[in-house]
Amino acid sequence: MREGPVPDRRPTSAPRPTSADVARLAGVSRTAVSFVLNGRGTGNISAENADRIRAAAAQLGYVANSAAVNLRRRSTATLGVITDEITQSPFAGRLLQGAREAAYARGYVTIVADYGRDPAREREMVAALRARQVDGFVHAAMSMREYEPAAGMLEVPALLANCVSRKGPAGVIADEEQGGALAVEAVLSRGHTRVAMLAGVEGARRESATERRIAGVQRAAAAAGARVRVVDAGWQIADGVRWGTALLDAPAGERPTALLAARDRVALGVLLAAAHLGLRVPEDVCVVGYDDEDQIAAEAVPALTTVALPHQQIGERTVDLLLAHLLDGDPLPDSDVRVPCRLVLRESVGPAPNR
């Protein structure tokens, strides 16, 4: 009698646990698992959830294997970061730093290409990065604006950083309305009722970010039962001097006791105008800027209260969302993601004068 093959009775190895298994056991998302196990949980994930994630990973014996993931997915573990002119600016360069660090935390590297707002050059750079088989794209803008993705950028997963598009992928942007609200609340909470805002470019359509800041200022002022006069102005120190002088050269009972500027450079001009008119800041007039610009806000005399833009956090969040899609299978956001701004309180803000 012919015997059949002897069955292999050796124990089969259990499938390796995945980040999805850890997330399921801990009762959290896979993105949260990625944050904690890649050392980026602080500030993003609660301590309680972080402890549950680490305990679940230890119980399951989960160990991330980025090399295996890359091989299985035919990944190059690279992201193409296309910028309009950020590499020329140390101010917004924090966005690139945030993107780079977030990518590194998950075993990725970024390849940055700056096209200097030349559309033809942008298309060439996108094509060159596609030829290098980047896993995804980030388009990062120097200042918040509308953007139309270049041909080829949407052939792989992509997100926008500090810009928005009506046709293309979602953007990760500063919450400019919340920032505007922070600026006006800083003076309303100190008793100021005569408030003006220097915003936009005189005689031209305001940029999208400025419109959002104005909306935030007006919304917060209305909620407090106050009104804010909005004046079209420029973006430079000279514009702040010009408009600051025009608004403050009035009797004490008529001039604003608080001036908000849509940019720190304009706020610096207001400080100069106040000094020229013999007014003290913040005793006679408060001044609030926007941007927390290096070498300006903290060094002004008096030091400038301002709203800090979250450039580094925008870069981090954009890459986190993109890699959560590439590595964990999470869907890309279908609408813009807003990152909160932060009020930096310095010496240029004080209580309203008693007159």
Rank of each mutant, 00 (worst) to 15 (best):
L129A: 03
V241S: 07
P302M: 11
V195F: 06
M144I: 11
L37E: 02
V230T: 06
D291R: 07
V184H: 02
P310V: 15
Y115Q: 07
M197L: 15
L322N: 09
D175K: 03
R346P: 01
T76W: 07
S348R: 01
L323M: 12
P351I: 06
E48P: 03
E124V: 09
A233E: 01
F91R: 08
I296T: 06
H276R: 15
G107S: 06
Y147S: 02
A233R: 05
G4W: 08
H325Q: 12
T193Q: 13
V195M: 05
V339S: 00
R227Y: 02
E48C: 04
E207A: 11
I82N: 03
S66A: 15
T78G: 12
R338D: 09
Y115M: 11
A215V: 03
A170K: 04
R206A: 09
A14Y: 11
P5V: 15
S208R: 11
Y108F: 15
G269T: 04
E48L: 10
A151P: 06
V36T: 02
L268Q: 12
F35V: 05
D284T: 15
R9F: 15
A300T: 08
A68W: 07
L323Q: 06
V6S: 08
G200L: 03
V301S: 13
A127V: 10
V164R: 08
A26Q: 02
D294M: 11
V201Q: 14
Y104Q: 12
A57K: 07
G269F: 03
D291C: 14
V228K: 00
D294A: 15
E155I: 08
A250T: 03
A128L: 15
E316A: 14
A300Q: 07
N38T: 08
V337Y: 05
N38G: 00
L259Q: 02
A181G: 14
M142R: 15
L326R: 12
A261R: 01
P157K: 00
P7H: 11
A297C: 09
D334K: 10
D328M: 09
G152L: 01
A102G: 10
E3S: 11
Q133Y: 13
P11D: 04
G278I: 13
Q236P: 06
P251R: 08
G350M: 05
D51I: 13
G203L: 13
T318H: 15
V266N: 03
V195D: 00
S335E: 12
G43Q: 04
G216S: 01
E293K: 07
P310N: 10
Q295K: 08
D21L: 05
R166L: 14
V138A: 06
A224W: 13
T245Q: 12
I173E: 01
R338I: 08
G4I: 11
E254W: 00
V349E: 02
A26D: 01
A64D: 14
D118Y: 04
G269D: 07
A224K: 07
